[in-house]
Structure formats: C-alpha cells, structure tokens
C-alpha cells in the first residue's frame, strides 16, 4: 500500500489566536517524520487539523492512498480514521473508567479493524506485556508510562497505515521516554507504518526520525532532509539549549 501525506500552506486559528501560519510538510510512504518544536508553537494544532478536529482556515491537506487522493480538510474525524489514520493524542485521552482491554477494544471500533481484533490484541500484549498483566485494571489507575503504552496500543488496534503521535514524552521519566520512543520505532517497523510524531524532546525524537521539521510560531522554520542534518543544525541547538534538557 502506497501512502503519502502532503500539507501545504495550512493556517489555523483559535478565535484571535493564530496557531498555524502557513505550514507545509510532506510525509512519504514508510517514513518516520518528526515535527519538533517547543511548547505552544502549533504542533498539536497541526495534528488536530490532520485528524479533522480543527478545521484549517486556509491551505490543503491531502492524503494519497494507492493513487486515490483524499482532501482531509473536507472529511470528518470518523471518515479520516476510516481511511486508516490514527492519532495518539496529547495527554493520552484514555477512557479512565474502562479497563485496559476495553480501551483496546474501543481502538478497534472502525469496521476494517474489527476483523483483526484478536490478532491486534495479541500483538499489543506481546509488545507491551504490562498491558496484558493489567488488562482488567481501570485505565485511569495506571501510571503515566503504562497509560502512554495503552494510548499507543489503542491507536494500533485500529490497524492504521498512518500513525500520528502527539508528544508521547509528556509527563514521563527520562527512562520511560526513551522506552516509549523506542517502542514507537519498533512498532513502525513491525507494522510497516508511516509515522508523523510531534515532540519537544528533540534528542529522543531524533533517535527514530528519518527526517523532520522544526516548527516555530506556527511556521516551519527548518526542514532537515536526514536525521543528521536535523541533529546538527544551529536552530535545534539554540532551541534545545533554550528549552532545557529533559
């Protein structure tokens, strides 16, 4: 399956607050692209535009699947999810009063995923054994790291082809951050996913990035065509030192 995401000139606002001022980027089939930026620069807003929960005021978002182009700015979130796009949202957004397994089952809500539910659950438990141990526990009572694993596994339950991940590192200890990021890299390989991940933890994000972008004040301030190019540019060093290491 060939897949390609093209974002061009996307603008978005919350009332008078302009969050995106003409963002263009591109994610190719099978790539892991990172969107780096410190707090408040528009990463989540772009993710929300991609999944259809924020409507851009200008610009185009096109998802090309096997030669068929879909204009995501005109589709509802349900329709976008049904195309095979899954978002692991900022703050995880689990269903706290449902069990781990019930959260996973909800991830398989879209009809294309229901047939593969048994396989996908088995795979989720294989990748995150702690979720299997805790499958009858209420999601809201788990630790932050476990919740993040569940949020990622829940997104995978929909059998996505494009996985969007918004700041998986938030609220996690450094060890858990690196484990979580490594798990995303691992999953990507095993499922043959295409990944777009927003992060402000540059160092960790770079570990799994093929290439990426830096977003500043709602605009793409730098495009790194490879991991090395991204890691060694002046802007990253400036932002990274400015944002303090964690």
């Amino acid at each position: 399956m060939a897949l390609e995401l093209t974002v061009s000139g996307v603008e978005a606002s919350y009332g008078a607050v302009r969050a995106l001022a003409g963002v263009s980027l591109h994610v190719g089939n099978g790539e892991t692209v990172v969107l780096l930026g410190t707090n408040g620069n528009g990463k989540s807003t772009l993710m929300k535009c991609l999944i259809g929960s924020v409507r851009p005021t200008a610009g185009m978002i096109t998802l090309n699947i096997d030669g068929a182009a879909h204009d995501l700015t005109r589709l509802t979130t349900e329709e976008i999810v049904n195309l095979g796009v899954a978002l692991v949202p900022e703050g995880r957004r689990l269903f706290p009063k449902l069990t781990v397994e019930e959260n996973l089952m909800l991830g398989a809500y879209r009809s294309a995923a229901r047939a593969k539910i048994a396989d996908n659950i088995a795979l989720s438990y294989e990748i995150f054994p702690v979720l299997k141990e805790r499958r009858t526990q209420l999601a809201g009572t788990m630790s932050g790291g476990q919740q993040q694993m569940l949020a990622i596994a829940r997104a995978l339950m929909s059998s996505p082809t494009l996985l969007l991940v918004d700041e998986p590192s938030v609220g996690l200890s450094p060890l858990l951050v690196s484990q979580t990021i490594a798990a995303i890299g691992d999953l990507k390989r095993r499922f043959g996913l295409t990944v777009l991940m927003a992060e402000q933890n540059f160092n960790q994000a770079l570990k799994i990035a093929d290439r990426g972008y830096i977003i500043v004040h709602g605009e793409i301030a730098y495009e790194g065509k490879s991991r090395d190019e991204l890691a060694n540019n002046a802007l990253i060093k400036e932002l990274y030192l400015g944002a303090a290491a964690h």
Partner: peptide
C-alpha cells in the same frame, strides 16, 4: 462499549472513529 465511553471523553471516542 462506546456507550460506556462516550461521557468519559467524547473527543477521544471520535478518534476511535465513532460519532
């Protein structure tokens, strides 16, 4: 399951592809 989830987080349920 979606009925049990809907009041907990409508936005998250939408991300699952449910209305």
């Amino acid at each position: 399951r979606a009925i049990r989830a809907v009041a907990q987080d409508e936005g998250a349920l939408r991300l699952m592809g449910a209305n």
